[in-house]
Simulated assay, not measured.
Amino acid sequence: MPTVFRYSRPVLVALTLGLMTTLTACSTDTAIPDSSADAPIPVDVIAATATAQQQMLRYTGTIQGAQRVPLSTKLMGIVTELNVETGDRVRKGQTLVRVRSENLEAQKRQVNARLQGARAALQNAKINFERIQRLYKQKSATKKAFDDAQTAYERARAQVEALNGQLAEINEMLAYATVDAPITGYVVDKRTEEGALAVPGQPLLVVETLDALKAVVQVPEADINRFATGDSVTVEVGAAGNVARRGVVTQIDPAGNYASRQFKVQVRLLRQNMGALKSGMYAQVLHPSGVEQTLTVPEEALVTRGQLTGLFVVKDSTALLRWIRTGEQRGNRIEVLSGLRQGERYITSISGRMRDGQPVRPR
């Protein structure tokens, strides 16, 4: 016979209450699906279309003054006077550096003394030649006397001319004992000090005009024929707050660098609100290279995840995250190089609730 358990009424009540508590706890731990999570979100959708865009080729360079002049001397000697510091404004003709020139001054005095004697000798030779010439015409002097007087006169004149040449050469060298500013501008580089040795051909100072600026860029040989003098270009300077200035190509070097195969191109910045531009800043020159069909999207349509950039395309009323490769920024639109095809629909503005696979409802 089966065993029959008999419980008293209090025990049955206790078992019933325990079972009800367990069922209540289990029903509380079970999550109720939130139907609002999959509710379609209204979004603005547009089809990707290619538009004609002016293509720009970029070349890197440096901002410089319109005139930049290294100053040196042909005279070797000690710098005895240096009147400027880096950043000083100088005017054209102002003496900036003096180099010791005592030896040249001594040579000049010697040549002047010899020249004075040579001029006296020339005067005597001239008087004697004119006297012999008159006697020779009167048949009172021999042909030999006339020739000797003429030779002495020409020799004295040649001696004076030679000494005058030496004096001019010394004066020219003495001119290099003082270094004057060839332009009005600023001292942008100081490479010597008082008491230092000045070496011929080695720059002592660099003077630059900063009232007018230019950009100097290196252009590869494959692109140099795109440039022509007078071309209008855009110059961008990131260090000056990403300012963009118009410029004009003023000079194209006819010969490139044999090692790098690049050509130097100079772009004069137009005189309009130079602002924070300074010589030495890194610059980019944008040169137009024709019109191409380009896909662009609004900047607010993009999402970033670390170093990845993407946007949400819409397919079958679902937002799908698509990673793309971007190019240049043109105003508030970004060029899309790959990852998006023409005609595909994408969301133009991303909200914080958007996720991959989110149901959407185009407005």
Results as ranks from 00 to 15, higher is better:
T229R: 09
G230Y: 00
G230W: 00
D231R: 08
D231N: 12
D231M: 09
S232L: 11
S232H: 14
V233L: 03
V233A: 07
T234G: 05
T234Q: 13
V235G: 02
E236W: 08
E236L: 14
A239G: 05
A240L: 04
A240F: 00
G241N: 03
G241F: 03
G241A: 04
G241S: 05
N242V: 00
V243C: 06
V243M: 03
V243L: 01
R245I: 07
R245G: 00
R245L: 13
R245Q: 09
R246M: 12
R246D: 13
V248R: 12
V249H: 01
V249Q: 05
Q251P: 02
Q251Y: 13
D253T: 07
D253A: 14
P254H: 04
A255H: 10
G256W: 02
N257G: 10
N257Y: 13
N257D: 13
Y258H: 09
Y258V: 15
Y258W: 14
A259W: 12
A259F: 11
S260W: 01
S260I: 03
R261L: 12
R261H: 15
R261F: 05
Q262N: 15
Q262M: 12
Q262C: 02
F263A: 11
K264D: 15
K264V: 14
K264M: 14
V265R: 10
V265I: 07
Q266I: 13
Q266R: 09
Q266A: 09
V267S: 05
V267E: 05
V267M: 04
V267Q: 12
R268D: 11
R268H: 06
L269S: 00
L270H: 06
L270M: 10
R271F: 04
R271K: 14
R271V: 11
R271T: 12
R271C: 09
Q272E: 13
Q272W: 13
Q272R: 14
Q272A: 14
Q272N: 09
N273E: 14
N273D: 14
N273W: 02
N273A: 09
M274T: 11
M274D: 15
G275A: 09
G275Y: 03
G275V: 06
K278Y: 04
K278W: 06
K278S: 06
K278D: 07
M281T: 05
M281Q: 08
